[in-house]
């Protein structure tokens, strides 16, 4: 564990807490994409199947369970919890996440899994687990898209929603620094280029948002996106 990864994880946790608080306190889900959070839930469920098979550390296991439970409760609140669910604007949350996110990521994951020969020599179970892990890496990189597109529609960005996206983006940017650090200071550290590629892609998707977020913070005014 290095300082970059710890800060990245904390940024991730913080973004989830900000969103949970916003939903609980404001009892309002407007401007929040249910589809993004369903994608994140799928990411966590497919990546953390190793909860049952490999023990890394208490920290890892607790965080994994916390991510799954908190994201599940966000999905639950937006979908089913009254009165929050009545404020969710389904008509605006239109990104076709099955066709343009889940489907392509499943195809890409299958292709890279077999081309890389990653699972050869392992049991079928491990192969499926590895395949799901690769799928989750691809899917995480673009899971924020429905939320960013929804934001473009509203233009005026609420403070808490803006903070949520800012911390969510910072998390993966800090992970990139963590990978560089580990490459230099951890002998025997094994590279997963798919994860690196997706981590950079994920961070780039936030770049535009970061720019306008910083500008609005500097001006100290309201945060709105350009047309």
């Amino acid at each position: 564990m290095n300082v970059f990864r710890l800060c990245g994880d904390m940024s991730h946790v913080f973004s989830i807490v900000v969103l949970l608080l916003r939903l609980r306190v404001a009892k309002n889900a407007s401007g929040i994409s249910l589809r993004t959070h369903e994608l994140f839930l799928l990411v966590f469920l497919t990546r953390y199947t190793d909860l049952f098979t490999t023990y890394y550390s208490l920290y890892n296991s607790c965080m994994k369970i916390a991510y799954i439970l908190s994201t599940a409760s966000i999905v639950y609140m937006i979908r089913l919890s009254d009165p929050i669910c009545t404020t969710y604007d389904k008509a605006q949350d239109t990104f076709r996440h099955w066709a343009f996110a889940v489907g392509p990521c499943a195809v890409l994951a299958t292709l890279t899994h077999f081309i890389s020969g990653e699972g050869s020599g392992y049991s079928l179970f491990v192969n499926i687990q590895e395949l799901l892990w690769t799928f989750s890496i691809y899917l995480e990189s673009i899971a924020i898209l429905p939320q960013l597109i929804l934001l473009q529609r509203y233009r005026e960005v609420e403070n808490l929603t803006g903070n949520y996206i800012f911390f969510m983006g910072s998390y993966r940017a800090l992970y990139i620094l963590n990978w560089i650090y580990r490459t230099y200071y951890e002998p025997g550290y094994r590279h997963h280029y798919v994860a690196y590629f997706c981590g950079v892609l994920q961070t780039l998707l936030y770049a535009d948002f970061f720019y306008y977020y910083m500008q609005s913070k500097r001006r100290g005014g309201r945060f709105s996106l350009p047309t």
Partner: peptide
């Protein structure tokens, strides 16, 4: 399954 890679991260 390899430890010491991005797989021991979150």
């Amino acid at each position: 399954v390899d430890a010491k890679s991005t797989k021991d991260e979150l």
